[in-house]
């Protein structure tokens, strides 16, 4: 059976007519209004508070967070993170960076931290550092997207994932992320990352590093914008 038959059966069961313009208008109006439903109060705070909330929530989900004042301090921060003894990764690990990070020219080239083998779409990595579109305070989620400078596998295949997040890109609620995206031309993949990969499938106790990164580290750069208006 085909598309037409299925759609006709739906209309039959609903006792409606395909030519009913009132229905079509109702749907068109609903789609174009893009009306928000109830927005949680927790997402409507001052920007500095939202930054704190975001950090606290993603830490609760077993990610780690550090804050630096400016982009120039990022390389040193990454170096510090990778040399910290607490990581469950082998010594002398090398770092991959994605195109978004490369474009920022943060000075990794001279640091001796970079992986010698360039990233390939289908290989595993020790550590990969990526940027993100922003983050959502209400749920403690980073938002990453696929593009020519950001592969989803770069966010997913490394044992350790480091994400660079500008404080100014942190918003209160999910709906504010939609405003940062071209709605009529979305990236293929928009992923909200809210902690390292985990599974509770054995005895309902969380274990980390199921299929994605075992560890997630967020570096928040800069201060909050003073002009932020919550939705």
């Amino acid at each position: 059976m085909s598309r037409e038959q299925l759609l006709n059966r739906i209309r039959q069961k609903l006792k409606v007519d395909a030519s009913d313009t009132a229905r079509q208008q109702a749907v068109a109006a609903r789609l174009s209004a893009k009306q928000s439903n109830t927005l949680p109060q927790r997402g409507r705070k001052s920007h500095p508070q939202l930054v704190m909330d975001f950090a606290q929530r993603i830490i609760n989900a077993q990610a780690t967070v550090s804050r630096v004042k400016s982009l120039t301090a990022v390389v040193a921060e990454v170096e510090k993170y990778l040399s910290a003894g607490s990581l469950s990764c082998p010594p002398n690990i090398k770092l991959c960076i994605n195109g978004d990070i490369e474009q920022l020219a943060l000075g990794f080239e001279g640091s001796g931290l970079l992986n010698l083998t360039p990233w390939r779409a289908n290989s595993s990595m020790d550590v990969c550092m990526t940027a993100c579109l922003g983050a959502v305070a209400e749920s403690g989620s980073l938002v990453v997207t696929s593009s020519g400078t950001s592969a989803i596998t770069q966010h997913m295949l490394a044992d350790i994932h480091i994400v660079l997040l500008r404080a100014g890109d942190i918003v209160g609620v999910f709906e504010e992320i939609w405003q940062k995206l071209p709605r009529s031309n979305l990236p293929r993949d928009i992923t909200f990352i809210s902690g390292p990969s985990c599974t509770g499938d054995i005895e309902m106790i969380m274990e980390y590093g199921a299929h994605g990164p075992k560890a997630l580290h967020v570096i928040i750069v800069g201060e909050s914008p003073a002009d932020y208006q919550p939705l």
Binding site: S147, S150, R188, F192, G195, G212
Partner: peptide
């Protein structure tokens, strides 16, 4: 931990998908 919105096929410039 992950909530993904997948929209269509790989775009020509995309690195994966």
């Amino acid at each position: 931990a992950y909530t993904s919105f997948i929209t269509g096929a790989k775009r020509s410039a995309d690195l994966d998908g």
